[in-house]
Design a protein around this nucleic acid. Structure first.
Lengths: 336, 336
DNA sequence: AAAAATAGTTAAATCGTTTTAATATCCCAA
DNA sequence: TTGGGATATTAAAACGATTTAACTATTTTT
């Protein structure tokens, strides 16, 4: 209340130096290739005065002059979805260690909203973007990349886009868990996936096909594609699957498998006695339903860590340096 | 890539007016009590030029000059916790409608980290704060309030602090669900709570006591207080509770009840046949474990909505207007 | 001893807006 | 015709930092 904003000028006056020198000390910066040379004693005095006056740099002024906001924008499908919430949490912590902040946005898997949210973040003036691209956002993504904004994709990649990404080896992961189901004797294995066109689920489908074909079960391949947020069809699907004599389900995501599991149990069946189940992502539900569920654990911490590291490398590169495009593929862990 | 930043000056030149006028039009502002009067035709022309040049206002400059960043800071316990993730999601959407952005931080229920995160947000220059105060953060909170930063507390309130808050009527909610357990015949009802000192769990404990005492069961009152993140003690506790002949559990939170439920089921018991359970917050686990669980549904959307509304009212009040302190208590919904 | 390099510091421009106070124009009443 | 009020517009001063180029000293090299 009492204290008007303390500025660099106040410190300069108090310490008997110029504002410029204070600036140099506060953000120990490089000019050209050289480090600014400040007398250690002067530097110490300035820091003491700053401390004493409770100086807090004004980020807006900094950002205005330097063009860097120290903020990065993150767009996920839905921050309330546990998978993305966890990633968000790691990103938040990682950013902190780089002296950065994070602003989040949720796309709801809607390309129009995706564009809008990205624009809001860009208007805010983020130094970079970490995006979970949603289906149909290719146009927006191309514009972003073309405009030279530092960007890293996460969880899903977009073919033909010159941009770094961090994804899971979804195809192998899916293959392995389906093989596990096969080794347990299941033959009629359905996969439940999303109808939206994103690389992660498409790759998982391919892994499922790989495993089924390798086992000579091409005829048993059945991929049920559910529209995002249209979950009313699950009961019908389950009834139909039962009539086909399905023995096991492989679920592409968290949400889907909760829905199908719920349907299985509502109908009075048990896992794994009546139906085998394999799925992506852990869930507290396992704690209550025996030990029969095979699942893929995604290294959420690495998703965040690698993405942040790539982004920071892009942000910190010298203006004329080439943009390093790197595609990181993370290995899953298969657990029960 | 091609386009250097388009500024207000570019528009002014193109439209043949002064930068000031462009500014007035872009943010249709009030001067003193009066609205700036701009000729509708001029206004239209300026907007057209702006549109045509793809003008994007520079937020840093705006913020520097006006002192408003259009960003609000939110600190929760852990953004990865479903309850807070959902609140975060609503806050994000609500903020958008006020033309604001949100930056999140997680305190991990650690007062030191709470202070640090709040300071990071303040350094960033947020226009206001929405906080879930953690135990032991009273000092930090008092400083915040004393410094006149617009603040609203959510989920938990801090007695003796002159600040608006939005909380659940935790006491009644707890009383009602315990009464439900009682009406189902349970007499030996334990409550599982946190040892940390926050208003929400304390109020819930009081509600539990109210119900037990009203039923003449004062002697059966047992509140098990678990330290945050020290969940290894749950199995011991459960064994001890069994030996006491406990028939029902009332759990103070999401996380706690998942843990206890898991322990119940791991030991081969069933809900509600062997143990009755009542708890706060819904969870997908219910979908898989019968219909016996009584739970309190918190109106998460209202938490966010009311808090944002209060905060906006504070932010938009005239400098000399009094700070309106309002305590909103939300009604829970009791479900099975 | 002169020239060159180095170290330490600063003046002043600049970033893109907002905002205050002033001005210019027109209209109508006195 | 003069003056007062609207109405519409603008010049110019902020806002608080960063950053370039310049300017002293001082030291080193030739």
């Amino acid at each position: 209340m009492t204290n008007r904003h303390v500025t660099i000028k106040d410190i300069a006056r108090e310490a008997g130096v110029s504002p410029a020198l204070v600036s140099f000390v506060m953000s120990n910066r490089v000019a050209g290739e050289q480090l600014y040379r400040v007398n250690p004693e002067t530097s110490k005095r300035i820091l003491e005065v700053a401390e004493h006056l409770h100086y807090k740099p004004n980020n807006s002024a900094r950002a205005l002059r330097s063009g860097k906001t120290g903020t990065i924008g993150v767009v996920v499908s839905d921050i309330a979805n546990p998978f993305f919430a966890e990633i968000a949490r790691y990103l938040e912590d990682d950013a902190y260690h780089y002296d950065y902040n994070v602003i989040f946005g949720s796309s709801d898997e809607n390309p129009e909203k995706f564009r809008r949210v990205v624009n809001v973040l860009l208007n805010k003036g983020v130094d970079g973007l970490i995006l979970v691209p949603c289906a149909g956002a290719d146009e927006t993504l191309r514009e972003i990349v073309a405009s030279g904004i530092n960007t890293v994709l996460i969880d899903r990649k977009v073919p033909g886009l010159e941009v770094s990404s961090v994804v899971l080896d979804n195809r192998s992961a899916a293959r392995v868990i389906v093989e596990k189901l096969l080794s347990r004797g299941a033959r009629r294995i359905d996969m439940v996936s999303y109808s939206m066109d994103i690389s992660s689920t498409r790759d998982r489908e391919q892994g499922y096909r790989d495993a089924m074909e390798a086992a000579g079960l091409s005829d048993n391949i059945h991929i049920e594609r559910v529209a995002h947020n249209d979950y009313a069809c699950i009961p019908d699907y389950f009834r139909e699957a039962r009539s086909r004599g399905v023995e096991a389900f492989m679920m592409a995501t968290n949400t889907l498998s909760s829905l199908v599991l719920s349907e299985i149990i509502r109908n009075g069946f048990r896992v794994p006695e009546d139906y085998q189940v394999a799925r992506f992502d852990r869930n507290s539900v396992y704690d209550f339903n025996g030990h029969g569920i095979i699942y893929v654990r995604q290294p959420v911490d690495l998703f965040a860590g690698k993405a942040m590291k790539l982004l920071m490398a892009e942000i910190r590169r010298k203006p004329k340096q080439e943009i390093p495009v790197e595609e990181i593929v993370l290995s899953p862990e298969i657990l029960e």
